[in-house]
Design a binder for these strands. Structure first.
Lengths: 283, 283
DNA sequence: GTTCCGCATGAATCGATAG
DNA sequence: ACTATCGATTCATGCGGAA
């Protein structure tokens, strides 16, 4: 009989912690691992040249605990070393494929308000990779959950509809007359692309998160349904756990730093007073 | 005494044609090579698994003819094979580095009007890579030539400068932030980022190009000055040559298909009646 | 001459069908 | 089993004709 600790933040090295987990128990992994040479205290500040070797034992565990229908979203960007983009990210992709992962897609996260700066030989870095890996080709994907409004070009066609008409239509939805509005909504919404436009969140008062809440939210909506289990093995200040809980998914967050674990739990408490807790059995 | 044929379109395999060129004679290479399995007539439609081997002899010539101060911009995107992103592009990066190239940067070209379609396991692909390679670290870059009007987000940010940003500056111990932002006040233009927003030119009257004119234009402005020599070894319908001529740079376009060469020359004639022609000596 | 509307057209990908 | 071809799907854009 094996258990996984749902809705909790665990302090420790994810390689070791996940070793205690059963196979095939996680629906989605979303994480932004410590970038090479960043967060120097943590993990001893991994040198770019050793990043792949450091990461691979951990992705091995992630591959094991992920359900065959699950997805692994890895938010990462290579840093500049000696005037060049380092190759550890693309080497990691190749190594993970050898490990058994399928490299399904690479989303581009366009950070609209990236950090300012000026260098003679390069511009500001305004995008990061969100690499999608899967265990099998038959992973779950709920595309309707992330549909977006059509582009402005369509608005001219719908310009005749007055604002009051729209409001009236929406109120009909609530009162049960949904059919006509559903068609209208269907025309208004389109599927998104593999480019995400999200601003980095600097609004957080107490800490700076690796990514904005909207990023894990988007992937959680896309790849899980209610009560599915979302894992972040480098949970940091808890953004992924927060997003999961907000969307009524179960979360498991792991971080090696007690300070970060405390911060994540504090943040979860702050946002969800009297939240759920539970333990799910696997056998 | 060696010559290169300036302001001309040459029909042939770029590997062979460039073999006749002297070393260090090109200021900028901008190209969008045939993607794996596309343009099937041409080059026999290169299989994804053989793409790197096919391309490497050509990048070897490009490395040789490029000036030490020059830049190579490679617009490319890997296709999906068997439900996965193929790895030939990232393998190419690694192989080119072994060849002696520096991988300086990867620009993301966000195609606003990407190809439509719906699939159960992926969204539409709305971005391509523009890989920047260099021969040395001391390449020419004219950043002022591509400055853009300041976006609204920065204006709102400047308004809050006295409050939030200073606090953030202190807490993060990031020096220079406040100073730089302060320098922007009153300025109309800012430097762009490494994300390009351009729509593809579809349904054009005369032809459809691999990339819009604005794409080579942007890189030509950024990496060359007037009368510099711009090379496109897969010039196709001539977009790069057109952009170079428009900006008063010298162009050399190469394509293996006579049909494309004719198209490119026709396009150049159409847009620039009575243009310049010349031959530059190298010794 | 404007503005509005209709329509063709893409560096695509999947799944089914056929050899 | 493995490859080759084909239809269905889908949306932002520019062009051309009409009001």
């Amino acid at each position: 009989m094996l258990n996984i600790p749902l809705d909790s933040i665990i302090c420790g090295d994810c390689e070791e912690i996940l070793g205690e987990f059963p196979d095939n128990c996680i629906d989605l992994i979303v994480t932004s691992p410590p970038y090479a040479d960043s967060r120097k205290k943590t993990y001893g500040g991994i040198h770019p040249d050793r990043y792949v070797d450091w990461f691979l034992p951990r992705t091995a565990q992630l591959l094991r605990v992920l359900k065959p229908t699950g997805t692994f979203i890895l938010n990462i960007k290579e840093k500049v070393v000696g005037g060049q983009r380092h190759t550890y990210v693309i080497e990691l992709i190749l190594a993970m494929k050898k490990q058994g992962w399928l490299w399904t897609e690479e989303f581009a996260w366009h950070k609209k308000n990236c950090y300012p700066g000026k260098w003679p030989n390069r511009f500001r870095d305004a995008w990061e990779r969100c690499l999608q890996f899967n265990k099998t080709k038959k992973f779950h994907m709920y595309q309707e959950a992330v549909m977006v409004p059509m582009g402005d070009w369509s608005k001219t066609r719908l310009a005749r509809l007055s604002e009051t008409d729209k409001i009236r239509d929406e109120s009909r939805v609530l009162s049960g007359f949904g059919k006509r509005v559903a068609n209208w909504v269907g025309r208004q919404l389109v599927y998104p692309t593999n480019v995400l436009h999200l601003a980095t969140e600097c609004a957080n008062r107490h800490h700076s998160a690796a990514f904005p809440l909207a990023l894990p939210e988007w992937f959680i909506k896309l790849f899980t349904k209610q009560n599915d289990v979302v894992l972040d093995p480098f949970v940091g200040s808890g953004t992924t756990a927060l997003a999961a809980k907000k969307l009524y998914r179960r979360y498991i967050g792991i971080d090696i730093e007690q300070e970060y674990c405390d911060m994540a739990e504090e943040e979860l408490r702050r946002c969800f007073l009297g939240g759920r807790n539970g333990r799910l059995e696997f056998g």
